[in-house]
Amino acid sequence: MVVEAPPTPAATVAPPRHRKIPPAVLLIGPSVVFMALLLGWPVVQGVLQAFKDDQGFTLEFVNRMVQDPYFWPAVRNTLLLIVVMIPLQFALAIAMALMLRSNPRLHKVHFFIWAIPLALSDLAAGLVWLAIFNDRGYLNSALSWFGLQGISWLAYDNQTSMFICVLIAELWRATSLVLIIVVAGLQGIPKDYDEAAQVFGATFWQRLRHVTLPLLKPSLQVALILRTILAFQTFAVAQALTGQNFPLVVGETYRWYTGLQNPNVAAALALVILVVSMVTSIFYLRALRDKNQGGLR
């Protein structure tokens, strides 16, 4: 009878010698490769394109971008659009969502109609509004029907009216995204909180300020980040309505790439948008973090 000592764990593992790949790496590996190829590589390419020519690293393209007469107006217009549009969109979306929550007659139909612009391509939306705002468009026709003189809303020398036209078209097109996020967020809040606030004497505005909006904060944060990043990328609507007359940063990127055939400056402009979007997102995440709830997140 032969009694063998039980093999020690070291002895059984030792022979293969080379280390096994941990399963976690195997599991996330494909998506890391996928992300690197589809997202990481283009970003690296874009950065290189903006800062590198045949001789090596250069700031020439950045200089050309900054010195272009359209650059600063484009930056100014984009920021102005964001600063005016985002608060308006949120006010509208929250008001609309609260109206839907009070369950008016046909509220499902209202919600459906309000969500329609989401399904529309932004270029199509731009063309729809062009049909309204151009010199012989629906708006001027309506004005003349009332006996009023039509206005050249989209005239190149009238920055204010162009801005208002782009603003209205963008409000119409993009508020539905905020609406849908806010409606979903509201549905997730049990109605007991609002009822408790009512019973304890809170008025409508007190409930909105002290109960509804704070509880809605996570949804608002998501909507704000999404909407701001998308607003930096506003392009097709302004392009359809004003062409080059009301420059925006993404429009400039497009012009440098296709019109001026200079992908390097276009890449530098794209980087500006990337950096600004990232900075804003981080700012929102920090600013809207719940101070009371710090430990919970």
Partner: peptide, 29 residues
């Protein structure tokens, strides 16, 4: 409306505001 009736109420789900501390919750009304 409820806020004009001078009532107070304890809810089955408690409905204690989750985003506020206990102190604020008790003093809410």
């Amino acid at each position: 409306p409820p806020n004009k009736r001078n009532l107070s109420m304890v809810f089955q789900s408690y409905a204690v505001f989750p985003h506020r501390k206990v102190r604020y919750n008790i003093g809410f009304g």
